[in-house]
Design a protein around this nucleic acid. Structure first.
Lengths: 212, 212
DNA sequence: GACGACATACCAACCAGTATGTATGTTCTC
DNA sequence: GAGAACATACATACTGGTTGGTATGTCGTC
């Protein structure tokens, strides 16, 4: 009940609020997220919250920028980029996502990005643009990786890298949603395997060549 | 302001409430849906609403069962089943979905099923099971169509029909979400074309045969 | 006169937001 | 180096509005 944190560390207060707000928004979405719940979780008072973020919307935007975006970068874009070959990188990305979903509780909550996109991007332009940033970066990272793969002779030169990248991001988002609803990771695994299978058609050595 | 409907047609009252509730839930999600807004839209009073549905949750469940489920059946499952060949049926399903997204306003709102799945299936078992019904039926319809296609020599016999069906449903849901966020149908089209391309690998005449 | 189908009025809980107060830290002045 | 002046970082108490839900009353039909 009594706050154990030092009450005068502005940075720590801000970070604590961001953390609790992320949790609350992840569980309940933004609109159903309760500021009082966030304050209860942190032991911070309303005055401090409004001092740091100005409004609930401001807090939401900050969560997207400072928590969700780095999360995607570190968890998915990093591993993809550090792979030796983009096709291996995409497979690794899928496995990484599966690992995440296998953690207890995560399956029920789904993908934070997908959740916020679904809830907010139709009704709040600030959320939409910030989430679009994340999805665009995700897509561009894959697309650039594939283009580099073409240059290095690892990926078939006729591959439309941007279309494939869009396709992969969308498919994984959808797969998360499906698994979330099923309360079962099996649908995700089925999708991931389908995608991994599909990846073979992107390799430089064409299994079947289309007419030129 | 004054209700123009006849006030004594129970069935009509119920249907009007379901319609307005669907619209409100489609726009704002279930939790942010306001009963007062639904009442305002219909000219019905709170007493009538609670007489017919008992609770907001009851109204929500009824919307899923009596509006969302039939919508999916009529809009997507019907056309798929009436196609001469499951691969053609899947292509038609994708085009049908694209037509829908091209209607003004729909792109911003996204897919009603995906919206509710994302919002509710983690926090309300009643919603989850009802939405799972819809997604399962969707998947099974495609899976059965593919299996029949195998029997009729239209689809490659080694195709894992259920996995492919899951993959397709998930990918389309994800594509909707992506396009919704982008405020642009292009990502959906990219995904749809990727999926149509992928469909060629399911045909009975194998372009490349795997090792037996 | 009984029952189905509402209508009206009201309630407690919760919501985001704000006005105001206060303790702490820094900076400037002499 | 002491003390005033000021800004930072909160804390507390409150507000107006909205929420889902309910208790009770009433009208029309069989």
């Amino acid at each position: 009940m009594a706050p154990t944190r030092p009450n005068r560390d502005a940075h720590a207060t801000r970070e604590a609020l961001l953390g609790a707000a992320f949790d609350e928004m992840y569980k309940n979405g933004f609109r159903a997220a309760s500021l009082d719940a966030i304050l209860r979780a942190t032991g911070v008072t309303k005055g401090a919250l409004y001092y740091h973020f100005g409004s609930k919307q401001g807090l939401g935007y900050a969560v997207v920028e400072e928590r969700v975006k780095p999360l995607v970068r570190e968890r998915y874009l990093g591993p993809f980029e550090s792979a030796s070959d983009p096709i291996e990188g995409l497979k690794r990305m899928g496995r990484r996502m599966q690992e995440e979903l296998e953690k207890t509780g995560v399956l029920l909550l789904g993908c934070p990005v997908n959740n916020l996109v679904t809830e907010m991007s139709g009704v709040d332009e600030g959320f939409r643009s910030r989430l679009a940033d994340i999805l665009d970066e995700w897509r561009d990272t894959i697309s650039n990786g594939l283009r580099e793969g073409i240059e290095r002779g690892l990926v078939h030169p006729e591959v439309d890298t941007e279309a494939i990248a869009t396709f992969y991001v969308a498919a994984y988002q959808g797969a998360c949603g499906f698994a979330k609803n099923a309360h079962d990771i099996a649908p995700f695994v089925a999708c991931r395997e389908g995608l991994d299978d599909h990846l073979q058609s992107l390799t430089a050595r064409p299994v079947a060549s289309r007419s030129p």
